[in-house]
């Protein structure tokens, strides 16, 4: 069910788009109204989510330290995995965001007779995760061609490099192949590995199917069905210049592609895909480990929480303390047998 439902949901979305694109007014709805709505939801939702996180303070300095702290001058500090300066944090975050450093540490643990635990290196998730994200980024950059005139230099360069081997006509983009491979890996991993399968939710499969759908329709358009790129660019340019118009004859597969992209955009802020924003704000990664050097303030620190006081402590144990020869602040009260009145 966890796999089937999201699959059916994506199929249903494809069908809706297919039917919609062939209904009167449907193309305008999918091609014009929906992109605006989806983009607004994406933008608004994304910003709202980030602001929502930012609204909650970070009361304590809680970086996860993954190396030697700054301490004595002759002990080499691990400035990146245990940063004590903002520069160190920036490098740590760059490595985390651009190279998935933490995931690179991944190991696989097995238990054998003995019992004996064995730890092996396991970089596949890191590798395919990284490939997936970079291909996605490249594909997004390539798509900027549709929203700009003239096409910026970096877009053309990206396209050129992506088709570097000049295979086929139209030129085959490497990212298209790697992207599909990576996403297939991420999907198969979820299905095959018992641990990951057990924790996976429909919300994990849905974006995979959705993105797969987007990739497949995109590939169909470019390599097989040969969509009318001129008309499409006219539509997309119309969207960015707020003067949208749709020419006749754009194939249905384009509208399916666009519809799925819109769904992805609108779904994004309400899903786990927000890890894109979350990773920047994660307090265990983006804080310096300098809490003994510089005082970190907690905005809701309650000054009324006080320890059980020394005075109370001494009041309770004074007699024992005096007897044991421990110093006390107040002496013992004169005891009964020393009472002068009795003498």
């Amino acid at each position: 069910m966890r796999i089937l439902y999201p699959f059916i949901a994506v199929l249903a979305l494809v069908l809706i788009a297919l039917v919609g694109a062939n209904l009167p007014g449907g193309q305008a709805l999918i091609g014009v109204v929906l992109p605006y709505v989806a983009f607004l939801i994406f933008l608004g939702g994304f910003v709202a989510k980030i602001l929502g996180w930012a609204k909650s303070p970070v009361p304590f300095r809680i970086p996860t330290t993954c190396g030697q702290e700054k301490s004595l001058s002759w002990i080499p500090q691990n400035c990146i995995d245990n940063p004590s300066t903002r520069g160190g944090v920036v490098i740590r975050m760059i490595l985390e965001i651009f190279l998935f450093r933490s995931l690179f540490r991944n190991t696989k643990t097995e238990i054998h007779d003995g019992p004996k635990l064995v730890y092996g290196s396991s970089k596949y998730l890191w590798l395919f995760g990284l490939l997936f994200h970079y291909c996605f980024l490249t594909i997004v950059i390539r798509h900027l061609r549709l929203f700009t005139t003239p096409v910026p230099f970096f877009v053309s360069v990206t396209e050129y490099l992506d088709g570097f081997f000049q295979v086929g006509l139209p030129v085959l983009y490497q990212t298209d192949i790697i992207f599909v491979l990576a996403i297939t890996f991420l999907f198969l991993r979820r299905v095959i590995m018992p641990q990951v399968r057990y924790i996976s939710l429909p919300a994990d499969y849905f974006p995979l199917f959705l993105i797969m759908g987007i990739a497949i329709t995109g590939i169909l358009m470019r390599y097989f069905l040969r969509a009318d790129i001129v008309s499409i660019k006219q539509l997309t340019m119309g969207l960015v210049t707020f003067s949208p118009s749709i020419k006749e004859g754009i194939s249905s597969v384009f509208f399916i592609h666009l519809f799925l992209v819109c769904v992805l955009l609108a779904y994004f802020p309400f899903s786990k895909l927000m890890h894109l924003g979350g990773v920047f704000l994660s307090p265990t990664r983006n804080m310096t480990n300098n809490s003994r050097m510089v005082r970190h303030e907690n905005p809701w620190n309650d000054p009324n929480i006080k320890p059980h006081s020394y005075a109370h402590y001494e009041d309770e144990f004074r007699e024992f303390m005096v007897e044991a020869g421990l110093p006390v602040d107040k002496g013992l009260p004169p005891s009964a047998d020393e009472d002068p009145a009795e003498k």
């Binding site: 996180w53 909650s56 641990q195 996976s200 786990k272 890890h275």
Partner: peptide, 24 residues
Amino acid sequence: RLMKFRSFKIFMDCCVRCGACADK
């Protein structure tokens, strides 16, 4: 607590269930 701890709020939202933590 969601209002008081950013860590709590973010950690509730952004797990992708990749499973890297499972056998750690």
